[in-house]
Design a protein around this nucleic acid. Structure first.
Length: 417
RNA sequence: CGGGGGAUAGUGUAAUGGUAGCACGAGUCCUUUGGGAGGAUUUAGUCCGGGUUCAAGUCCCGGUUCCCCGACCA
């Protein structure tokens, strides 16, 4: 991708209203833009990261049998009346049709998926079933905060599982827990699995927390046996319920949450199946969420320095940042441009993801500053200085040292990581 | 939803009730090019609606909206 044609302009200054570091950096580097409180636009760079995260999530969901669907976001009032949540779900966005009818903008999808699968699940032979969905969610938050960490509209993956008995639900629940750990690891994050409140239908649930000062959750961590529990449910003793060791208090942001819904929604929608014995039984359900757009923010909160973002490799919008530094002299610049163009073409041919800063009207300093701000894993510089040595400069974003390498070694150095 | 603080140009700020100014940014041109370069020139603003006053960015009332703390949070 050539920078001169790309929808990207870094900002020198941004509004002081953005307090969260992740929001400030993502806006400064032109990944996202605020439309209004708690509502953000994703620009090409931001969307590329979102797509990477989604891809990782997709792969891991499919690896545990998940099938992707896309459910409607505009939900009829009736479905929400049926579970009682039209009245009890405080953050529900309600919109009225000009012809009078009411709709909910879905904040979660139990009310859609449960009646939907009634048309599919009839027999124990149809179970288990795992369906997931990645799309926007709407929640009428009384207080949006910290940029994309808590918004009124956000991107979420939700997986729903359907089972014939608790044993099967438990088994899958643990599989999902493992899949989630793989997902967060691939996103370059260390996620703590925290026992949390199960809400109204389960003894407990599990949250996946990433340590950050921008987080909203306090949880307790046992350094001895690694047990974690949310502040909401922990006893006052601050001792590990497993091993008795004293607990550490940590602050995190919740990037995922898994629940056993059991028969709460299958009862509301009369979702039953015929078991082997011919008897009609309630289908048991689980639901499992990951905040995709929040992850984008949390990843930045966990990966930056004074100069900008440092993207973990697997989710960086581009792997390589190719820069050509000009001299303002026609003859010299022609050579520099030609060499940089050549390297760019080579990389494109190899299928590498490269962001090529081919801008002529931007000073060298600004290009280098932008490279640090954008934070792609590898930086390649071509300039008069490097060409004198028949070389190019190669630098990892997270390192301070740049290496000068011979052009003849380009192919073996620059390849898919 | 309770509490607190804001809203003047894209951003950050100034203006005793009396000419809305400055800096940065942005646009154009020239010069420049290894860590956000320089000059010339142009551009752009009092959140909205009422009220008080000869006169309102400033005072009063109402609204909208943004941020922070808390509560809430499948």
């Amino acid at each position: 991708m050539k920078a001169s044609k790309f929808y990207f302009k870094s900002r020198k200054k941004i509004s002081q209203e953005e307090v969260a570091i992740s929001a400030a950096l993502l806006i400064k580097a032109n990944f996202i833009e605020r439309l209004t409180s708690g509502v953000y636009n994703f620009l090409p760079l931001g969307l590329r990261v979102i797509k990477r995260i989604e891809q990782i999530v997709r792969e891991e969901m499919e690896a545990i049998g998940g099938q992707e669907i896309l459910m409607a976001l505009l939900n009829p009032r009736k479905n929400w009346e049926q579970t009682g949540r039209w009245g009890s779900f405080n953050a529900l966005f309600k919109v009225q049709s000009r012809f009078g009818g009411w709709f909910a903008l879905s904040p979660t999808h139990e009310e859609v998926i449960t009646p939907m699968v009634k048309n599919f699940i009839h027999s124990y032979k149809d179970l288990p079933l795992y369906l997931f969905h990645i799309s926007d969610k709407f929640r009428d938050e009384p207080r949006s905060k910290s940029g994309i960490l808590r918004g009124k509209e956000f991107i979420m993956k939700d997986l729903y599982s359907f089972h014939q008995d608790e044993k099967d639900l438990d088994k899958y629940y643990n599989q999902v827990k493992k899949a989630y750990q793989r997902i967060f690891k691939r996103c370059g994050l260390k996620a703590f699995v925290v026992e949390a409140s199960g809400g109204t239908f389960s003894d407990f649930s599990h949250e996946f927390q990433v340590i950050t000062p921008a987080g909203e959750d306090i949880f307790y961590y046992c350094p001895s046996c690694k047990f974690c529990q949310n502040k909401e449910i922990i006893s006052n003793t601050k001792k590990c319920p497993n091993c008795g060791h004293s607990l550490e208090e940590l602050r995190g942001s919740e990037v995922g949450n898994i629940f056993k819904l059991k028969d709460k929604y299958s009862q509301a929608f009369d979702l039953k199946f015929r078991d082997k014995d011919g008897k009609s039984k309630n289908v048991l359900m689980g639901c499992y969420g990951i905040g995709i757009s929040r992850l984008l923010g949390v990843i930045v909160e966990a990966n930056y320095d004074q100069d900008g973002i440092i993207w973990p490799k697997e989710i960086a919008p581009f792997q390589y940042h190719l820069i050509r530094l000009l001299k303002g002299k026609v003859k010299e610049d022609k050579i520099i441009k030609k060499q940089a163009d050549l390297l760019y073409d080579k990389m494109i041919k190899k299928g590498l993801e490269v962001f090529y800063d081919d801008r002529d009207d931007v000073s060298s300093g600004e290009k280098l500053v932008d490279a640090d701000l954008l934070g792609f894993p590898w930086r390649i510089v071509v300039s008069e200085k490097t060409l004198k040595e028949n070389s190019f400069e190669f630098k990892e974003r997270k390192s301070r040292k740049a290496k000068l390498l011979k052009l003849k070694d380009f192919d073996k150095t620059v390849k898919a990581k």
